[in-house]
Computed example of a mutant assay.
Amino acid sequence: MSTAATADVRGAWMRRVGVLLVLAGLVLGGYVAWQLWGTNVVSGRTQRALVEDARRAWAEDGGDRASGSLDTDHGTVSAIVHIPRFGADHAVPLLEGTGDDVLTAGLGRFTDGAAPGGRGNFALAGHRVTHGEPLRDMPDLRPGDEVVVETRSWTYTYVLDTGGADLTVPFTGTWVLDPEPSNPVGSVGPRPGEDHLLTLTTCAELFHTDDRLVAFGHLVSRERTEP
């Protein structure tokens, strides 16, 4: 094969490789865009729908308040969580469990922990980026901020004892989910003597998940929800 022919073949392969690299870049860029924006649109719509569905079901079943949970295609909704620091209209459905399907639809409750308003550690998880980002502004939380948990029968108000950026733990730091969490390496932890605790957990970094931000609070009041 002549030198010119060899150069032509080499050039053709280089063009093909270049096209493949461009296509790969477009696919990767599309995936990143979907994760960062597309999932927020879809999950935001789902979360708003679940909040509306829960409130509608609670109102229609007001005469029978024995069970406050609502089974949906996305999981079991047990409450609606409001964090006023995130805005007056902040309302996110709380679902049972912390699997991927649950966390795309709202906040998830660690089911080994306490139920809303219950004795023990009422521990919640949520995304900080993608899938609706219910805890994106976690670092903005301050001690004294309220977390209001609305169920069919009761509205529980918790007050934070630590800020949203005060404690970072590795994903293996499961002590934060204990019934009585005790920090083995520092002083940041729940307020001593409280037995109705709240724990919020989310990713510490926006684009990888090696560590978790954790905030602790305690129950300060509960009010009966009107039928």
Rank of each mutant, 00 (worst) to 15 (best):
A24Q: 15
G126I: 03
P116W: 01
V41D: 06
T168R: 15
R191E: 15
D211V: 05
T46N: 03
L70M: 11
P179D: 12
W154S: 06
V41S: 03
D100V: 07
G38L: 10
W58C: 06
V214W: 13
G144R: 13
G126N: 05
G62N: 04
R85C: 06
S2I: 02
T130W: 08
T157G: 11
R16D: 00
L160R: 10
D211K: 15
G18D: 09
T162L: 05
V169T: 02
V129E: 05
L94K: 03
L200W: 11
G132T: 01
G173F: 11
D61I: 00
S43Q: 04
G113C: 07
F207R: 15
S2C: 03
R119N: 07
A33K: 06
E133W: 02
D178N: 14
G30R: 09
F122N: 10
L141R: 06
T76Q: 14
V42K: 04
V102L: 06
T174P: 03
G97V: 04
V17I: 14
F171R: 04
W175Q: 05
E194A: 15
N40V: 01
L198Y: 06
R222M: 13
L50A: 02
G11Q: 12
Y158H: 06
D53R: 10
A79H: 09
H74L: 08
G62K: 03
S182H: 14
G30Y: 10
M14P: 00
T76N: 05
L95A: 02
T209D: 14
A57Q: 12
L141I: 07
G186I: 06
D53G: 03
L23T: 13
D195T: 11
S78R: 10
D53W: 00
L107I: 13
L20N: 13
G30P: 03
L177A: 11
G193H: 12
D100F: 05
T209Q: 14
T98W: 04
Q35C: 01
V149L: 10
V22E: 12
R56D: 15
M1T: 07
L50T: 00
R128E: 01
H131G: 03
V169W: 01
F207I: 14
T225Y: 02
P134L: 11
V92W: 05
L167N: 07
F86L: 10
F216K: 02
W34N: 09
V185L: 10
E150T: 14
G186K: 13
R152P: 00
D145W: 01
S2L: 05
G163T: 10
G120P: 06
Q35T: 09
G126C: 09
V159H: 10
S69G: 13
G68C: 08
L70C: 02
R224Y: 03
G164N: 08
L103D: 10
P143Q: 05
V17N: 13
G126Q: 06
V22R: 12
R142A: 14
G120V: 12
T201F: 04
Y31F: 15
A125Y: 03
G144L: 10
S43R: 00
L160N: 03
R222E: 14
D100S: 13
V102P: 02
E96S: 15
P93T: 09
V188F: 04
S187V: 04
T168A: 08
T104G: 00
